[in-house]
Nucleic acid binder design. Structure first.
Length: 481
RNA sequence: GGCGGCGUAGCCAAGAGGUUAAGGCGACGGUCUGCAAAACCGUUAUUCAGCGGUUCGAAUCCGCUCGCCGCCUCCA
């Protein structure tokens, strides 16, 4: 069946065939470290990490690269405003970036190259472009000449005429075409700079992604991803530079996520309508934030409201409760391991649903990473699982299927990251656990004696301490919030 | 002005020509329960922004209209 990916470059869904069988080179445009990243920035970080982990789950060997832009106008501005060095700003927010990523359950990339550590590679690339006649010098600046690259505008579906007509760019008279972009910027006083054949200066923004992606993934690689707003000019320029320099195809599949909207508008730093990701994680569990993004297809815009996040939290609770119920149910059972083989073959209604939905889940994920549809399948199974547990008396086959469903959830969670721990019931530290367990046990006995007020007092008090007791038909369960 | 996208129940959302339009949240009624919670059952879209067209058949394709958004400047 195979994986299909919507490729921005061709504007259609294509079969995903990596350059080398079973190996994937995957590049995601990372942060410019001049501030904390906001919830909108978190979307690509979360979803593409999930897709990368899904590819790994499907047996691909993935090399995932995400850059850190640590030299740029914004960082310089910020440093000047605070009266500290550029390096200090960059270091501070690079650290914050990794902290926030971890809080959100996003795995580290295999490589997080920093722009400032790849200046020689960029210089080499610019040199090549000059040699090949795609770039020109003005003073200490070097520009890419867009007219020399015939396919300029292909990714964004624009042509030079249209772009010129709509140009809102301030025209620099020295440039041959207003759309020509800087590969190298001559040094200004007080700005970080490096030696180059064209004098001291620093790289333009676009060149770093070309230089670093090609260094770590090769001149041609599989997937290049980022937010929709990077299509033009950033990715367009990357393609121009890279292809011009190497005469080879650059990225083969271009993936772009839709925006996070807030009150009907794109969340962005410049509009000032943003929520810092690290603040949002204080109010909502990271699993909720992840599910919020995964419940919508990545290419569609997604709307943010507190109400939607609450709905997501409730949905997640339902799933986690189901898992808890299953844990509880299977605790004392042999998990169906002694089921006769032919019984499994024959199955039950539930076991057939699990088998079917597993396939449907994978199918949805393989169809341009439709995590929203895939997660729908999980909820369908959860509903059925609850239903059969409600009936009590489970057949061996159902027990087996229940265990299978549980196993499957934990397996999928390797890339979804929406379940709290490796088992459903989150507990506290060792000694604490024993004490709470004892209290719960004592309370059970009180309940048997119908000492309701004392039993309720224990439940209420423990709740204040962060332990939730639920009296289920099978007995009391407890967990830490 | 140019280019692109979107509009599915009270809310979120999948579906992209052919069985009763997934799933979640919420609400209401019921079951279970000492209570609470969880869970279950039932109800909640004769219809997919509107109007036309193509087709045996359209939420899905085409045209127009309305509404919203994005890109064309730094942006995920």
């Amino acid at each position: 069946m195979g994986i299909k990916i919507y490729n921005t470059f061709t504007s259609q869904k294509e079969d995903f065939i990596p350059l080398e069988p079973d190996r994937v080179g995957f590049y995601l445009c990372g942060p410019t470290v001049y501030d904390y990243f906001h919830l909108g920035n978190a979307r690509p970080f979360i979803v593409f990490d999930v897709y990368r982990r899904f590819l790994i789950y499907r047996g691909f060997q993935v090399k995932y690269v995400m850059n850190v832009t640590d030299v740029d106008d914004k960082i310089i501005n910020r440093a000047q405003k605070e009266g500290v060095s550029v390096a200090e700003i960059a270091a501070r927010y690079t650290q914050a970036f990794f902290e926030d990523m971890e809080k959100l359950g996003i795995h580290r990339a295999d490589v997080h190259p920093k722009a400032t550590e790849h200046i020689p590679e960029m210089i080499e690339l610019i040199q090549k472009l000059l040699e090949k006649g795609y770039a020109y010098k003005i003073g200490g600046d070097v520009y890419f000449q867009v007219e020399k690259f015939r396919k300029y505008g292909r990714l964004s579906g624009k042509n030079l005429e249209e772009l010129k007509a709509g140009a809102r760019v301030e025209v620099d008279e020295r440039k041959r075409n207003p759309l020509d972009f800087a590969l190298w910027k001559a040094a200004k006083a007080g700005e970080p700079c490096w030696e180059s054949p064209w004098g001291k200066g620093r790289p333009g923004w676009h060149i770093e992604c070309s230089a670093m992606s090609m260094k770590y993934l090769g001149e041609t690689f599989d997937i290049h991803a980022g937010g929709e707003d990077l299509i033009f000019p950033h990715h367009e320029n990357e393609i121009a530079q890279s292809c011009a320099a190497t005469s080879k195809k650059f990225a083969r599949y271009w993936m772009h996520n839709g925006f996070l909207n807030i009150q009907g508008e794109k969340m962005s730093k410049s509009l000032g309508n943003f929520l810092i990701a690290r603040e949002v994680v204080k109010r909502h569990r990271p699993e909720v934030i992840r599910l919020f993004f995964l419940q919508k297809h990545y290419r569609s815009p997604i709307n943010y409201t507190e109400e939607i996040l609450r709905q997501t939290a409730n949905a997640l609770d339902r799933l986690q409760n189901t898992l808890q119920n299953i844990e509880y149910y299977l605790k004392d059972s042999p998990q169906g391991t002694d089921v006769a083989h032919d019984q499994i073959q024959q199955g039950s209604e539930f076991s057939r649903l699990v088998q079917y939905s597993k396939r449907e889940f994978i199918k949805a994920m393989e169809d341009d990473f439709n995590s929203a549809a895939a997660i729908g399948k999980i909820f369908e199974m959860a509903k059925e699982a609850n239903r059969i547990m409600e009936k009590g008396e489970l057949s061996k086959v159902d027990q087996f299927a229940l265990a299978d469903f549980r196993r499957m959830l934990l397996e999928y969670d390797q890339f979804l990251g929406i379940l709290p721990g490796k088992d459903g019931l989150k507990k506290g530290e060792g000694d604490e656990d024993a004490l709470v367990a004892l209290l719960v046990q004592v309370r059970e006995e009180l309940r048997k004696k119908k000492e309701w007020s004392l039993a309720d007092r224990i439940r209420n008090k423990l709740k204040e301490l962060g332990y939730i007791i639920e009296d289920r038909r099978e007995g009391s369960v407890w967990y830490k919030v």
